[in-house]
Amino acid sequence: MPAVEISQLVKTYPVGKNKLTALDKISFDVNEGEIFGLIGPDGAGKTSLFRILTTLLIPDSGSAQVLGLDVVRDFREIRKKVGYMPGKFSLYQDLTVEENLNFFATVFGTTIKENKYLIEEIYVQIEPFKDRRAGKLSGGMKQKLALCCALIHKPSILFLDEPTTGVDTVSRKEFWEMLGRLKKQGITIMVSTPYMDEATLCERIALIQDAKIMSVDTPAQIIQQFPDPLFAIRGDQMGKLLKQLRQNPEVETCNAFGDYHHITLKDNSAGTQTRLIGQLEKENLHIKELKAITPTIEDCFIRLMPHNNQIQRS
């Protein structure tokens, strides 16, 4: 039995006389014990989905089961078994670290002591501040406390809505290492993130954009399905090179990727690359490197985005 089964799920919100579609017939499963990533930008529908799965929001149509229980009918049962860390910090700001933890343990009919082993490793990092009010903690500490509170009743599945947003790369790495260790305890983890580079840390991912799922698979499979050969190009004037590449007739797509630009070509026969370099050199651009590369998840995401071509700047 999958830990989460979602079928044709729809959620809309009224906006004046119109309707805003947050989730448009979404279907996928999350397997038991896996780290499943929901990857997409703000406004894609990630939070609406989390709120439905944690029984805080009722879908318009379609169905969803969590641990075999229906999110509408069996909401009481589900609430006992899931841990949820919302994107917005939702603990009691005027309770101390220890009081918050105690509160959540009590609500779920357990004690800190009983499940301490589960949170031990995270809790030691915030324990020195256990008498500090939650509102006075730093961002990183709040995040750790929220995770402890979501874990204290030993949930079978953990829903983490953008736990690493606004967190620097070092803390992000630590957070993902923590998730890896929780997985070893047998907890299923569904986590959302706007950072594409975190996709490869999940076993399977769903790419979500504009209320629709664009792809569900392992990161490796999604990368393998990238349809065209992809190249990275680097020159001495990257800004000018980007503009020239966008205008060049040989180039199909072109996106800046840090110190390289990633391009696909209209014609992948031999000679195109040499021709392209020749044309660019004519524009007084010195090309330092042009090489075939494996796409990243971000390349795949951009490729899968609808209207991807229309919003190229004139």
Binding site: P41, D42, P194, N255, I302, M305, N308
Partner: peptide
């Protein structure tokens, strides 16, 4: 922060 990869570019 949080915008899609195309808009970010």
């Amino acid at each position: 922060g949080g915008v899609d990869p195309v808009t970010r570019r």
